[in-house]
Design a protein around this nucleic acid. Sequence first.
DNA 1: AATAATTATCGTAAATTTGCGATGAACTAT
DNA 2: ATAGTTCATCGCAAATTTACGATAATTATT
Lengths: 113, 113
Amino acid sequence: MKRTKENIVYNEEAEQLAKFAKALAHPIRIEILKQLESQSCCFTGDLVDVLPLAQSTISQHLKELKNAGLIQGEVNPPKIKYCVNQENWAKAKKLFNNFFSTENMPSCNDGEC
Amino acid sequence: MKRTKENIVYNEEAEQLAKFAKALAHPIRIEILKQLESQSCCFTGDLVDVLPLAQSTISQHLKELKNAGLIQGEVNPPKIKYCVNQENWAKAKKLFNNFFSTENMPSCNDGEC
DNA sequence: AATAATTATCGTAAATTTGCGATGAACTAT
DNA sequence: ATAGTTCATCGCAAATTTACGATAATTATT
């Protein structure tokens, strides 16, 4: 960060997209989401069985995904069921789709370059 | 990272997707890519004019985007023209599309939960 | 009440990211 | 040759991320 904490303001859509991207910016979180995608839901314990990291670490990654809004947890004592947050998942999908749409993206070797 | 550097091996596709996501995980890099998308190409100098960061910082972000493979630079002395790398852009687009495809994604409130 | 099971949080250490100014490298133009 | 332009890199400082073990918190079962 900067020398002194000083907030720089960015485009809101860019900020939101970056936030989602950041949540996806670690392979273990991709794997976690794939699990949740395929299994409709699962418990932290199940994830710990499958993934090569300590329970506390998985829990931290889950927290980040939750903070980004991509997943949500329901208590099901003494377990907690994590699921994809459909609403935000759809929002992220749309943002990435828009971003990658190459509609009017000119090629680099166009004349005016 | 871990106490001692010890590599954990992840699914390759997850790793690649995470790498692209990491490149997108900062609003300024989103903005940079948007510029490159819309303008077909541009020079670092142009970006510095538009973005609220120092030239050296922009240069670093460009480097990260280049490392991720999302952009490429051509020398055009004394300037350097940055453009989206079409091939990897398409690859990223496909990876994100696949990832977000909710084909057989069951809802959280299905019976078996 | 005591125990077991499951998940979150704390404390710590290492690594990485972010940002800046200063400086360097490469090339142009004078 | 000198000066100017453009971009990259270095060195630094602050912030954040990543990972772990230990411990706390919550709830069920005995």
